[in-house]
């Protein structure tokens, strides 16, 4: 994108003052909301994590929350489950969206947008509506999934999908996948449409196969989009909450416990605000590390 910053390398002092005043006045409303309801609570979250903070107490305890956290077996389970969710859902989401996008971006506009809408539907439908209908479909007795799978001969008796520690996490990941591919598909379709066509044509004239054209020309050009998609999908997967709260509440036997749900459980069910805040800080740190890693990885791949 071009920045129209022509000539204005040094403004006169009076002009600069006027720019400052105007600039900050325009920024004022958004800064007010941003500082008041994002930055301030973020700082407070970090601050509270050093306190034994409950309904009745507010006492400085240094790093004790963090120490307790790393010794807490449920937190470890939650951490492992969260990582499983991320490690499974992020690559699957990216590959699936890219696959869909490569098929639909060449279609007639009308069909492109039809498919884009269909894959975006679960996102717009809303996490709660999606979750309750899946709960019904997964239901052991009246659920359609058991019925269909039995008729197809894939299972012999009804399975209690969400009530079994073997299947519950898999079910959660499945639903999460349906709600996360919509946005990457939109992004990939747009990125693929913007690939430089003269390069593609030149390669084709030189006799490159479709696969070669894809890997050598399109893939490097959509790399920034891939990177962006990796980051947002990772963040989304880390934050998966409604599904868990409404379907399993972290059960059975903590098999679907995630960090996000465990934060909620500690802070809002047990009123352990300090402990919950410490977990929030750790979660934020983990996400930052993951994003930075993907950034690095994709950069070195590209370079």
């Amino acid at each position: 994108m071009t920045k129209a910053m022509k000539g204005g390398t040094s403004l006169s002092r009076a002009n600069q003052r006027r720019e400052n005043i105007a600039g900050y006045l325009f920024m004022l409303p958004s800064l007010l909301f941003f500082v008041g309801f994002v930055i301030f609570p973020m700082g407070l979250c970090l601050f509270n994590s050093f306190f034994d903070y409950t309904m009745t107490d507010f006492r400085f305890i240094g790093l004790s929350n963090y120490k307790e956290l790393f010794a807490d077996p449920i937190f470890q389970t939650a951490l492992i489950n969260t990582i499983v969710i991320v490690v499974v859902s992020v690559p699957v989401t990216c590959i699936f969206s890219l696959w869909v996008a490569t098929i639909i971006y060449k279609m007639h506009d009308r069909y492109t947008s039809l498919f884009r809408c269909i894959f975006y539907l679960p996102v717009v439908t809303g996490s709660v509506a999606v979750t309750v209908v899946w709960k019904w479909m997964f239901s052991p007795y009246t659920g359609i999934l058991n019925y269909v799978l039995k008729n197809l001969g894939l299972i012999s008796k009804n399975i209690n999908w969400l009530g079994s520690p073997d299947y519950a996490l898999g079910c959660i990941i499945l639903i999460l996948l349906t709600t996360s591919v919509g946005q990457p598909i939109v992004l990939y379709v747009s990125a693929l449409s913007n690939v430089d066509h003269s390069l593609v044509e030149a390669a084709e004239v030189d006799g490159a196969t479709n696969l070669q054209v894809f890997w050598r020309i399109k893939w490097p050009q959509i790399m920034p989009t891939t990177l962006y998609i990796l980051v947002i999908t990772t963040i989304n997967s880390f934050q998966c909450f409604a599904l868990i709260q409404l379907l399993t509440s972290g059960g059975p036997n903590n098999s679907t416990q995630t960090i996000m749900y465990y934060i909620y459980y500690n802070a809002f069910k047990l009123s352990r605000y300090g402990y919950g805040s410490a977990m929030g800080v750790i979660l934020a740190a983990i996400i930052a590390v993951f994003s930075a890693m993907q950034f690095k990885l994709a950069k070195s791949d590209n370079g």
């Binding site: 400052n20 105007a22 600039g23 973020m42 979660l283 996400i287």
Partner: peptide, 27 residues
């Protein structure tokens, strides 16, 4: 607007977007 500090402000906005919104819910 070329006001002083706009690059810093913008960076803070971008960084904040990468953080999980839910963790600030307690405070």
């Amino acid at each position: 607007k070329k006001f002083t500090g706009r690059t810093i402000i913008f960076s803070i906005f971008v960084c904040a977007m990468a953080l999980p919104k839910q963790v600030i819910l307690i405070p």
